[in-house]
Nucleic acid binder design. Structure first.
Lengths: 252, 252
DNA sequence: GAGTGGTCTAGACCACCTT
DNA sequence: AGGTGGTCTAGACCACTCA
C-alpha cells in the first residue's frame, strides 16, 4: 500500500519498493514481477499509475517487459573487454583484423557483412582526414556479428587517392585486414587516435544492435596516421552492455 | 491529425511527427513545443496519449520539460575532450593533477571537494589492487566542479601500506597531485590501465551531476602500476554529454 | 489568474502468449 | 479461454511559473 500523505507520487513509491526488492535479491534476476492487475490490488492504485511505476523501472534498466508474458527482472549480460592496444603491428600481423582477433580471444563465432561505396567528404570527415570537403572518400560499412547476433557497427572512410587500385576497394581486403593493405601500399602507420564517447542509441541502432531499453552505446572514432597524414577514420558503435574498452598507457 | 488505420499507435505518430520537425529544424533548439492541450486539439487524441508522445521524445533526449513552463527542444551542450595521455610524467609535473590541468586547457574555473577515509577492500578492489579482500585501503572521494557545476565524480583507492605516513592521507596532497606523492615515496609509476564503459546513471549520480534525461555516464576505472604492483585505482564517472575521451596509441 | 506540466481515477478494448 | 501487457478515453485536481 502507498502512503498518501508523504507527498511522494504513488507510482514512484511503487517503483522504489519494487527496485528495493530487486536490489536485495528478493526479486532475483529473471523473476517475474507481479502482474499489473496484481499490483493494482497490492498497492491500491489505478492501472495507469502501476504502468507508470513499471515504466520507471524499465527506464532504469531494472526490468524487461514482454507483451503477453509479464515483466521480469533483467539478468545482467556478459561484458567483453576490448584491448585497444591490440592495434599494434605485431598483434595485427597475427590475425585478419581487430574484430576477428577479438573473436578468437573471446571464443565466439564471428561474421562480418561489408558494403563498399564512394562518398564525398562532409565537413567532419574532411576535418578528421585533413582533406577538402567534397573530396572523394572510400567508405567501408561493416556490420559485425557474433554467433549470429549483431554486436558492432563500423564505418571506415579513407581518402580515395589512398585506396585507388588496391584491395581496399574490394569487399575482401585479404590477410591482415585493411591496415595490412595500407602499409603494403606504402602508408606506414605511426599512431592511432581514438575518441570515445557515449550516448543513447538512435532508433535504428537500437533495432540493429537489438539493444534492451536503457542501454547506451559507446561510440569510438579512430583515426590512423602515417608520419605525414591521416589515412583512415573508423566510426564504431558498440552496445554498452556487452563491451568495455581497455587502454594501456605508459607513464613515460 | 493521426492516422487511425495505420496500426501505428497514435502517441508514436505524434512523437515521430514532432521528432521530424525537430530534425528538420522547423522546431529549433530551445523552441517550445505546442502545449499538451494544444497537441490534444492538433492531433485529436487524449491528453494521456499526448503525454505518452512527449515522454518518448524525452527518453530519446530530444526534448526537455519544465514544470509550469512547457517543453523545449534540447540544445546540445559543449563537449570537453579529455586527453588521457596527459597522465605521462612530463605533463604531470607541469600541473597539480589531471583535473586541474584540464581546467587550464578548457578555460574553466575548477574546484574539487575531497573526503578521505579508510575502508577494507571488497572483492573487486582486492582483485584490481592485487591485495587480499579485507585489507585496508585509503579512499579519496572527490567531487570535481567547473564554474560551480559538478562535472566529475572520482573515487580513488590505494593500499594502506603505500599511503601510511604520506600526504596521500591528507586532504591536500600538495604540488603535482597524488601521483607525484606516490613517486616521491618511491613508487615509480610505469604504466596505467584504463577500462572505459558506459551505462545509465544511478539516481544519485543523475542528481549529483545534474544530468538531463537520456544522458548516460562514462565510467572509467584507472589502475596505476609500478614495475612491481598496482598502487592506485581510480573510479571516475563523467557526464557523457560533456565529455569525450581521447587516447593516442602508437602503431609500434 | 491563467497557462503550463504532474498526478490520478475508472473504466474500455486490443494484441499477444500460454494451456 | 484466460492470462499478460499495450493503447486509449474523458474527465479531475494539484503544483509550478509568469505576468
Amino acid at each position: 500500500m502507498v502512503d498518501r500523505t508523504s507527498g511522494v507520487p504513488a507510482y514512484r513509491q511503487v517503483a522504489d519498493q519494487l527496485a528495493a526488492q530487486i536490489s536485495t535479491g528478493e526479486l532475483a534476476p529473471g523473476a517475474p514481477l507481479p502482474s499489473e492487475r496484481e499490483l493494482v490490488d497490492l498497492f491500491g492504485i489505478s492501472r495507469p499509475m502501476v504502468r507508470e511505476a513499471v515504466k520507471l523501472l524499465r527506464m532504469r534498466g531494472l526490468v524487461d517487459v514482454e507483451h503477453g508474458r509479464g515483466a521480469f527482472v533483467r539478468t545482467p549480460g556478459q561484458v567483453v573487454r576490448l584491448s585497444r592496444n591490440r592495434l599494434t603491428r605485431a598483434a595485427r600481423s597475427l590475425n585478419k583484423g581487430a574484430f576477428l582477433g577479438d573473436a578468437d580471444a573471446a571464443g565466439f563465432t564471428p561474421s562480418v557483412s561489408v558494403r563498399v561505396r564512394v562518398e564525398t567528404a562532409d565537413e567532419r570527415v574532411a576535418r578528421l582526414l585533413e582533406i577538402e570537403p567534397g573530396n572523394e572518400v572510400l567508405v567501408r560499412d561493416r556490420v559485425m556479428s557474433a554467433n549470429g547476433l549483431v554486436v558492432q557497427l563500423a564505418v571506415s572512410r579513407l581518402p580515395r587517392d589512398v585506396t585507388l587500385g588496391t584491395a581496399l576497394e574490394e569487399i575482401e581486403t585479404g590477410p591482415g585486414g585493411a591496415y595490412a593493405r595500407l602499409e603494403q601500399a606504402g602508408h606506414v602507420l605511426v599512431h592511432f587516435d581514438e575518441t570515445v564517447s557515449a550516448r543513447m542509441p538512435s532508433v535504428e541502432e537500437q533495432a540493429q544492435l537489438q539493444l534492451p531499453e536503457a542501454i547506451p552505446v559507446i561510440a569510438v572514432t579512430r583515426v590512423a596516421y602515417t608520419a605525414d597524414r591521416p589515412v583512415e577514420m573508423n566510426d564504431m558503435v558498440l552496445a554498452a552492455n556487452r563491451y568495455e574498452l581497455h587502454y594501456r598507457l605508459p607513464a613515460e
